[in-house]
Computed example of a mutant assay.
Amino acid sequence: MRFIPLLLLLFLAACSSNKDKPTKTDEPTFTVIFLDKTRSVNINKAFVARKYQQAINEIIEQNIHQKGDRLEVYFIHENTAKARALNLTVRSEMEDVSAASPTDREAAETEFTLLLNREKAQMRQRVLQELAEQNTGSSNQATDIWASLPVLAKANESGATVKAYYLSDMVESVKGSNRRDFQVKPPKDNAQAEDWAKTDAKSLKRYEIGSPDITMILPFEPNASVKQNNPTVTQYWQTLFNELGVASVEEQ
């Protein structure tokens, strides 16, 4: 009998704690897709087109679930930060069915699913159209991936869960003494890649990108040579993103 009051106190504390907590709702997802529109990525190549089309389908299926979910598409080229191609937000909303009968609840869920699937299909179509868009202008000569960081910083200000996808070879190629041109001079090994990334991160931390999930979807076939798919380049980005506070970095 000695421990019954203690159990009672624990029960009351738990009730009080649960009462004070707000009801948890899913945060909206802010998805940013960066499409490489430079000469080094050939979207007309069958393998690349197939891989990137499948990736876009999966990104939309995984991240678009509710009203407020947002999708932006940017082109990677010489002027990445100013190259927003799409800005879409889910409008479909699931009505409150907390007091509804099972039949009415099922009808509401079915209607919401139909509306959401329609929006997802429209999103998919528009992103695939942007994927197929050719960039024949002079901006295709440079690959400014650093310029994606202010885009992520802006997305971070929304308060949503940010997920970023780079459909790119990740070969940064910008002229200038304080920039990286991996087409001319890639890191010679992983140690140099990490050293460069940590050095660059010191100045790039001015962009407060938060802790997004980042996925790099590379346009290389499994049998690509080191010259094509240089592992030191992706090691650079893995290290740089980690230094900037990214929650997770995945390579596909």
Rank of each mutant, 00 (worst) to 15 (best):
K19H: 13
E27Q: 09
K37Y: 08
S40T: 14
N44M: 07
F47H: 10
F47C: 04
V48Q: 03
V48N: 03
Q53L: 10
Q53D: 12
A55R: 09
A55E: 12
I56S: 01
I59P: 02
E61K: 14
I64A: 02
Q66A: 06
D69V: 02
D69C: 11
V73L: 05
Y74H: 05
H77D: 13
N87V: 08
R91T: 14
D96N: 12
D104R: 12
A107Q: 15
T110E: 14
E111N: 14
T113P: 02
N117E: 05
R118M: 07
Q122N: 12
T143C: 07
D144N: 15
I145Q: 03
I145F: 11
A153T: 03
S158A: 09
T161G: 04
K163F: 13
S168C: 06
S173C: 07
S173P: 01
S173L: 04
D195E: 07
D200R: 02
K202E: 15
Y207I: 01
S211G: 11
S211Y: 07
L218P: 00
F220L: 09
E221K: 15
N223P: 04
V226N: 10
T234M: 03
W237T: 02
Q238F: 03
L240M: 06
E243P: 05
G245S: 12
V246P: 01
V246L: 06
V249I: 08
V249K: 01
